[in-house]
Design a protein around this nucleic acid. Structure first.
Length: 490
RNA sequence: GGUCGGUUAACCGAGUGGCUAGGUAGUGGUCUGCAAAACCAUUUACGGCGGUUCGAAUCCGCCACCGACCUCCA
């Protein structure tokens, strides 16, 4: 399979030609959410980024197996005062079973992802469903001398690992620096070295989420699930591993160490990391009060928002920035994207009504090539979108009569928009259709006809009155050359 | 303090050693009874200071500011 795709490999810190290990098959693993609260913007970015990659690879003809995990075991509160299992803490607060919490937020996550029109991965494995695989992996690591047991917990021996392999190849950490920079914290006395990490943790008495193991009743270490599940579904070596930049260290570094130690070879060929999201230039954090969930964005129910933003607007906004750049959300920026997206989608509608002529002043082949070049260059969606807007301008000028398009180019351009906008960027016309749509349509026809009569007799007061009343009811009229159009005001 | 990344016009956001993406907003015009849309034209740029170069926003150095990670756990 031929392609010109170039991806930035975070392992080599360079752009590299994409060559799958077993073309046409591609294995891709992406770190999914920890399901203990509502999905927020930070979840949307990797989901959309790797959805774009999934869609593009599929479009290029690859058979992609896309695996994204759901983390539903043993999470400690990061920003809280004391270390507490995230899911359990939430469970106590809400008087729910831990798995009830998991189910609730997993449902929300899936719903939000559907709203954002991200395709479901091929497999969405849960950590809690792969305890056995994780225990087997720990056994293997202990057998090979990379794990040691202390008080029912198992830790990964980074020192031993680094004698044979290089620890820190992804994040550029140096072991000595880690040693000297590591603060002394509670709960570390069991480890040989502070940079060792847990493979299995013995559960304390109050820890509800626990599973039996050869070492203790407990739960697997965080990094382990990704090694176990990626190996199970994609093999010891696979093509692409994705996730947020914040996961690069320690999570992905540990994942590499575990998998390499277990299998004797590096697990992943291409490491891809999406950058983070800021809000009004600040990082998004609950403590800063600028934490926005996807449901809040979709409903407009948040102090920094002046209106609601549709899932497609959010998607479009994310795609307007390159995935390796930080992206700054603000009400104003979202407003701009909202308008921009409307313009794009409207042009597609206009395109479907264009009348071809014998002349044509549009170089389709060159345009088509440019679009592919944009995506081939490390998924440069903002460039692709800028090109699409060039075509939008052309489409509108054809509609305006200042440019012409041939029948052949018209068909090609329609296909191109379908390919890039619908199939690859994953943007769709949002259903503004509500109940009683058919009735509304016929009522509108009557009203428009009445107004037409008024206008024919130059009865402007009546004509304007109708338009104003409709505006109050949320409908705007547009007098075009072809006739009267109407649409709902969002 | 350490490692890495960033600083582009009103806002968001690409990009390249010389040819000033794109969206939104603004301004002027065309069209229009008015309006909306569309079309045409157009104003604000590359954090600061040095250096390399015929030429740097783009390469190098220093400084300032911002961010991620540097921790048990996820």
């Amino acid at each position: 399979m031929q392609n010109n795709l170039i991806l930035y490999n975070n392992l080599s810190k360079k752009k590299e030609s994409f060559e799958p290990l077993h073309s046409p098959f591609v294995g891709m693993y992406v770190c999914g959410p920890t399901v203990y609260s509502d999905a927020h913007l930070g979840h949307a970015r990797p989901a959309i980024t790797f959805d774009l990659l999934f869609r593009y690879l599929t479009h290029l003809g690859y058979k992609v197996r896309y695996v994204r995990n759901i983390t539903d075991v043993g999470h400690l509160e990061n920003d809280a005062d004391e270390g507490d299992d995230k899911i359990e803490k939430k469970a106590r607060l809400e008087h729910l079973e831990p798995m009830e919490v998991v189910q609730k937020y997993m449902n929300t996550f899936y719903r939000n992802m559907d709203q954002l029109n991200t395709l479901h991965p091929s497999i969405e494995p849960r950590a809690s469903g792969h305890i056995i695989e994780q225990i087997e992996l720990i056994k293997l690591l202990i057998d090979k001398g990379y794990g040691y047991v202390v008080n029912g917990s198992v830790y990964f021996d980074v020192d031993t690992y680094s004698m044979k392999y290089e620890y820190g190849i992804l994040s550029g950490r140096v072991l000595e620096e880690l040693q000297s920079n590591t603060r002394v914290l509670d709960g570390q006395e069991e480890k040989k070295n502070p940079f060792d990490f847990a493979l299995w943790k013995r559960a304390s008495a109050e820890h509800i989420m626990r599973w039996p193991s050869p070492w203790s009743d407990g739960f697997p270490g965080w990094h382990l699930e990704c090694s176990a599940m990626s190996c199970k579904y994609l093999g010891n070596e696979f093509d692409i591993h994705g996730g947020g930049m914040d996961l690069q260290f320690p999570h992905h570094e540990c994942e590499i160490a575990q998998s390499t130690a277990a299998n004797g070879k590096a697990p992943v060929k291409y490491w891809l990391h999406n950058n983070m999201i800021t809000i009004n230039g600040q990082k998004m954090a609950r403590s800063l009060g600028n934490f926005i969930t996807l449901d809040q964005l979709f409903s407009g129910n948040h102090p920094v928002l002046t209106q609601q933003y549709s899932p497609m607007t959010i998607r479009f906004f994310v795609l307007q920035a390159h995935y390796r750049s930080t992206v700054d959300f603000s009400n104003e920026a979202l407003l701009a994207s909202d308008k921009g997206l409307q313009k794009l989608m409207k042009a597609i509608e206009t395109l479907s009504r264009l009348k071809p002529s014998s002349e044509c002043n549009f170089d389709f082949e060159q345009f088509n090539q440019k679009c592919y070049e944009a995506l081939d260059d490390d998924l440069n969606s903002p460039i692709l979108i800028s090109y699409l807007f060039e075509a939008v301008k052309f489409i509108n000028s054809v509609a305006d009569g200042t440019s012409t398009i041939s029948e052949q180019v018209l068909e090609s351009l329609k296909q191109l928009f379908k390919t890039f906008v619908t199939d690859i960027l994953g943007l769709k016309e949002e259903a503004s259709v509500r109940g009683g749509e058919a009735l509304t349509g016929s009522l509108m026809n009557i009203i428009i006809d009445l107004r037409k009569s008024a206008r024919e007799s130059k009865d402007w007061p009546t004509s304007d009155k109708i338009r104003n009343y409709l505006k109050e009811a949320g409908i705007v009229l547009k007098d075009t050359k072809e006739g009267v159009e109407w649409e709902r005001i969002e």
